[in-house]
Design a protein around this nucleic acid. Structure first.
Length: 885
DNA sequence: TCCCTGGAAACACAT
DNA sequence: GGATGTGTTTCCAGG
């Protein structure tokens, strides 16, 4: 058994280890050289797998922790898989087979499977999980993180691991997989240049045909394009436009599918190699590989790279080549780079600067490890705040690979979204990362069915380049001091991957159908003098990407009120799209378990309403004597299947003046949002999350929760109201990501709940019980993340800097920034630190929330880490982890 | 010629 | 298993 895995992993492991070095997630400890920890673990391949299934959780935990080390990283992937254990059969079967005989082969297969090629292009197999976007359940998410982790790993050690990516088969059905697999396998050998690159365009192109995974692509059937390859239908389609060569434009199109399929998996596959496959692959790719590495012309490389999603990314025209090589994260700085761009490294990438753009290298963050894309990060920390000054339009028709670009995402005003980093006074430029995230009620994570697409041309003034990170394409945009750290996002379009391609991936649990809403997620990593890195994230309002949905589904952009006394009666103006004269606005309250507790239709003033506005009268809440704010939600309905996302709303106690306008609210709301269960919805305030994040969400997952309630449609903005933070803009701060996303982890979030002062009536009872129920878990979690809990991140006074989360990234916390946060009763803040009991809903007034904040020792990080390590160790009996600390 | 777009046909999937 | 409705993906055409 091990063999296969080992091979695969081992490689990586080592390699990865080095790179990863630090584990982004984990704190310093991990980072620490030791860190590397080794992770001996890692390797336990077998175990890992085995574990996976059983211990997903562990996996999760581990992974996070582990990641740091290379090994861990590897594991991560597995972990992801685990989740899917649902599919265990397959995997196991495969493996089983392997065990006996060719472990490797089997393994590979299994592995391969995991990965799904397809999408890969954009998403790694590993990603899969992540991918799973939304749907992906916790697992996914978790996975995702893992992915990230993985990817990181990979990235980091690009070479080593050849590839990591598991790729997956693209689309196609099984066949594809196989192919992928094969492909994947290819390389085990590092040599294979993993990445992909190996494949040259040609190569893969060629290869493709045969395999034509794509074909399988569902689509394929439909139409046939003339492809070069002639692939069959869809498959055939692969046009190779993607092919590197051909497509000059790298970016745009890498069609995922194609890419994925072909490219991707090629690359991915590498990792897992099958001998046979590998061989084959090698054959194909060889050139590439070799070349890629070095000699291939940039374009070529690209192509090659492209193929591999993982690796590749499209680079930009310019300089970007991807490197297949490794690259140091550092170089680029951006994590993503690390991962993705491999290419350029040598030459290319760096060259990027060549771009016309002057963008020379942005500062990279130094931190070797950056937080996984599915981590929830705060939008502000210490003096820094990443904010979306101009939100994108709520609708943007994404383009398919088979189509030409549909242009950059625009702002409502007609311009383009604008993102700015406030509080940054250094003279060094930074890199703003952009990826397409989910907009469902789960934690924010990379969207499995959409990828950011780089737009170039005369109409684009902002330089950018693409990077692949764990199957997720990132657009890196320079943020220059001279521009006041403001970036106009006129270079980002959205690419839609075929549902079938993504869904076929193993492990992918998300469903693409009707999962057409996304958010633009921006991240920036700021290196601190002390070596730490602060990572901030801001996500946009939801963007509907489907042509049809955009034309038919009602969408609420803004709401004039976000709260009202329980007696209702106030008028609220909803601004949005696709409203109809017969549109209904329904207020609903769900219990934590998702049950419908109350539903009431609001009166719509038809005379004052039009397609973009609805004037309604807020209905009276079922209980006019509530003692604390109650979060409910409402949606606009144009028919049985046409309803908007739920918007958050709060009913306030009669005399309770407005509640704090703190950001919390936003978050809190979510809690109540329908569908959320305690677990699943742990509500963490963003902050919390962030804090927690370091640890890694997954753990949370364990608890089960998963999703957070999100603000659903909530556009942050809209709802946000009270909290300024939530400004329409997306309120980066808080909510964005977080609210929604926290879930998993922390779940326990309980803390959050507290936050929500709101134990809304509704929730309260339920919540309480739920909470209690979860208490145990929670405690665990606490252990885990003591800090998390405590860390208010940003907000809190605690002392813990918001950054913490990242602190992991950064070596030390940044005590530096302590966010003095406001303190007061703000639930959020307090919540974090509270003890489990604290979590219990506080029905009292918000103020009651009084939170006791403990101040954490600065050493917390380490302490924390230690704790984490311990936990991991314990949990992972099978795995041996060495934590340093 | 290429990029964007809007529109809609052709499919695929769900009910 | 067919009919119908809805959502997805691919094409087409115009600016």
């Amino acid at each position: 058994m091990k063999s296969a895995e080992e091979d695969a992993y081992s490689y990586p492991a080592s390699a990865s280890l080095s790179l990863p070095v630090s584990n982004p997630y984990l704190s310093p400890q991990y980072h620490s050289p030791h860190g590397g920890p080794s992770l001996s673990v890692a390797i336990t391949p077998a175990s890992s797998y085995g574990h996976q299934e059983n211990k997903v959780t562990l996996g999760f935990y581990t992974s996070p922790g582990m990641r740091p080390n290379s090994t861990p990283t590897l594991e991560s992937p597995r972990i992801e898989i685990t989740p899917y254990s649902q599919f265990p059969d397959e995997e196991e079967e495969e493996e089983g087979g392997s065990e006996g005989g060719t472990p490797v082969g089997n393994r590979i297969i299994s592995v391969a499977t995991l990965t799904l090629p397809n999408a890969d292009g954009y998403r790694d197999p590993s990603c899969l999980s992540p991918a799973s976007s939304v749907s992906s359940r916790s697992c996914h998410s978790e996975a995702s993180s893992y992915e990230s982790g993985l990817s990181c790993t990979y990235d980091t050690s690009p070479q080593n691991s050849p590839w990591q990516s598991p790729c997956v088969s693209p689309k196609g059905g099984s066949s594809s997989l196989h192919s992928c697999t094969l492909a994947a396998s290819p390389q085990p050998s590092p040599s294979g240049s993993p990445r992909t690159s190996s494949l040259t365009d040609d190569t893969w192109a060629t290869s493709r045909p045969g395999s034509s995974p794509q074909p399988s692509s569902p689509c394929g059937s439909k139409r046939k394009y003339s492809f070069n390859g002639g692939g069959g239908s869809g498959g055939g389609a692969y046009k190779f436009p993607y092919s590197p060569n051909q497509s000059p434009n790298p970016s745009p199109h890498t069609s995922p599918r194609l890419s994925m399929a072909e490219e991707t998996w090629l690359g991915n596959t590498n990792q897992y190699t099958n001998s046979a496959i590998v061989a084959a692959i090698n054959a194909l790719s060889t050139d590439g590989a070799v070349d890629m590495g070095e000699s291939l012309p940039l374009k070529t490389r690209r192509t090659g790279l492209e193929p591999c999603p993982s690796l590749s990314m499209k680079v930009e025209p310019r300089g970007e080549e991807l490197v297949s090589g490794e690259y140091s994260t550092s170089d680029y700085g951006s994590p993503s780079h690390m991962l993705f761009k491999k290419e350029g490294y040598s030459g290319g990438f760096l060259d990027v600067p060549q771009h016309t753009y002057s963008w020379s290298k942005p500062k990279t963050y130094i931190s070797p490890s950056l937080p996984a894309l599915d981590w929830q990060l705060p939008s502000s920390s210490g003096p820094y705040t990443l904010q979306i000054e101009v939100q994108p339009k709520s609708h943007h028709r994404a383009h398919y690979e088979t189509e030409g670009s549909r242009g950059a995402v625009k702002a409502l005003s007609g311009g383009h979204p604008v993102v700015q980093l406030h509080g940054y006074v250094e003279s060094e430029p930074l890199t703003l990362q952009l990826f397409i995230g989910t907009a469902d009620d789960r934690m924010l994570r990379p969207h499995a069915f959409y990828q950011v697409h780089r737009i170039t041309g005369k109409t684009v003034s902002t330089p950018s380049h693409e990077v692949l990170q764990n199957c997720t394409k990132l657009l890196e945009i320079p943020m220059l001091p001279e521009s006041n750290m403001k970036a106009i996002i006129d270079c980002a379009g959205i690419l839609k991957l075929r549902n079938s391609d993504i869904e076929l991936r193993k492990g992918e649990t998300d469903i693409g159908r009707k999962n057409t809403r996304v958010r633009m997620v921006f991240r920036v990593h700021i290196s601190q003098p002390n070596g730490r890195t602060i990572s901030l994230q801001a996500s946009s309002n939801p963007i509907e990407c489907s042509q049809r949905s955009a034309q038919e589904l009602p969408l609420v952009d803004k709401q004039s009120l976000d709260s009202c006394v329980a007696t209702g009666g106030k008028k609220m103006l909803l601004t949005g799209h696709n409203f109809q004269l017969d549109s209904k606005v329904v207020f609903v309250e769900n219990a934590q378990d998702g049950h419908h507790i109350w539903e009431m239709e609001a009166k719509v003033d038809k005379e004052a309403s039009k397609s973009t506005n609805l004037l309604i009268e807020i209905p009276t809440y079922r209980n006019q004597n509530i003692a604390s704010p109650v979060s409910v939600s409402f949606y606009v309905c144009n028919g049985k299947r046409r309803r908007s996302q739920c918007q958050h709303f709060k009913y306030l106690p009669p005399k309770v003046p407005t509640i704090k306008t703190e950001p919390h609210d936003d978050y809190e709301l979510p809690q109540h949002a329908p569908g959320f269960t305690l677990h699943s919805k742990p509500y963490y305030s963003p902050q919390v999350l962030s804090a927690a994040m370091p640890v890694d969400p997954r753990p949370v997952g364990l608890f089960g929760g998963a999703s957070c309630p999100q603000r659903l449609g909530g556009k942050p903005s809209s709802i946000a109201s009270p909290t300024s933070a939530s400004s329409p803009v997306g309120s980066p701060k808080l909510h964005d990501p977080s609210p929604t996303h926290f879930p998993k982890g922390l779940l326990l979030s309980s803390p959050q709940q507290p936050t929500g002062p709101l134990p809304s009536a509704t929730a309260s009872a339920t919540q309480v019980s739920a909470i209690q129920a979860t208490a145990a878990c929670y405690q665990q979690s606490v252990l885990f993340h003591p800090r998390v809990v405590s860390t208010p991140h940003l907000s809190t006074t605690t002392g813990t800097p918001p950054e913490r989360p990242f602190s992991s990234l950064s070596p030390s916390h940044a005590p530096t920034h302590e966010a003095p946060v406001s303190v007061s009763p703000q639930p959020p803040k307090g919540s974090p630190k509270r003890s489990p009991s604290a979590f219990l809903p506080q029905q009292g007034s918000p103020s009651s929330l009084a939170v006791s904040i403990k101040q954490e020792p600065q050493e917390l990080d380490q302490m924390y880490l230690d704790d984490v390590n311990e936990i991991i160790r314990n949990d992972l009996s099978s795995i041996t982890v060495h934590s340093h600390a």
